[in-house]
Design a protein around this nucleic acid. Structure first.
Length: 256
DNA sequence: ATGGCTCATGTTATGAGA
């Protein structure tokens, strides 16, 4: 089984790139973040034509997540359980396919909106951890994947790529990510590549990709029984060199 | 030099992204 996650920074700008990538890689599931459109604007038919059903949580202008699946899937949640907001932004979608539950998430960046903006990032993390605890308690096999907007350690960003005060490297952000690891979840890429320099994002500005000034902020976290099935975990770095690319690249795992 | 780029928006500037 092959599962991928990709922050595409507007699906309407990236539709052909994503279609080409799907044809070449043929994952069973593709989790998209930052689709930046409402559900009715999502190119459902184009993906259906190559065998993928789209499950979409969208909103105008910002955010938005979608999960594409080749096999039948049931939508379990369209927002993160436990978040207090009445009209939450489109940042979470959970589906189940077979016996596997897959949460697709786009965590708030946390740099904008002042202290309140950073607090929303922490609230999202807290709700995510409690959701993971609940699923572990009931023995669910799951993956929580997407754009976490956290560089977990200093190894996960190029020197000087971010100011030390940035929300992506803030000690509270990193502690919140570690809390998920201490619950027993496995960071798939790090589990198989503990020492490598690996990035999933390069800014559009200042020749960041050319200079390899990247960040590793897109992650796939696996529950224990899924981690035992982990065969490969790779980042498709080449996708950043395409014409009009997203600033993020796909992260891909395979399971036995 | 907290932005050098890219995105969406009834736009011709602004906010968000990370």
């Amino acid at each position: 089984m092959k599962i991928a996650t990709w922050n595409v920074n507007s699906i309407r700008q990236r539709q052909n790139l994503v279609l080409d990538w799907l044809k070449r890689n043929e994952p069973d599931l593709l989790l998209l973040q930052e689709i930046k459109c409402e559900a009715h604007q999502f190119p459902t038919e184009a993906f259906e034509a190559i065998g993928y059903t789209s499950h979409v949580v969208g909103q105008k202008s910002y955010n938005g997540v979608a999960t594409l699946a080749r096999a039948p899937a049931e939508v379990l949640a369209r927002k993160l359980p436990g978040l207090s907001e009445e009209e939450p932004p489109a940042r979470f979608l959970e589906i189940r396919t077979g016996s596997l539950t897959v949460g697709n998430l786009y965590l708030p960046n946390g740099n904008s909106g002042g202290p309140a903006g950073f607090a929303r990032k922490m609230e999202f993390f807290d709700a995510l951890a409690r959701h993971a605890e609940a699923m572990l308690a009931e023995g669910t096999d799951f993956i929580l994947a997407g754009d976490y907007n956290v560089c977990p350690t200093d190894k996960d960003l190029a020197t000087g790529a971010l100011p030390p005060t940035d929300a992506l490297v803030h000690p509270e952000s990193r502690a919140a990510f570690r809390r998920l690891l201490w619950l027993g979840l496995t960071d798939a890429v790090r589990a198989l590549h503990p020492q490598e320099t690996i990035y999933t994002f390069w800014d559009y500005q200042a020749g960041a990709f050319r200079r390899d000034m990247g960040l590793r902020i897109d992650h796939m976290l696996l529950s224990p029984r899924i981690a035992e099935r982990l065969l490969t975990a790779e980042v498709d770095r080449d996708e950043r060199g395409m014409e009009q690319p997203s600033d993020h690249v796909p992260v891909v795992i395979t399971l036995s």
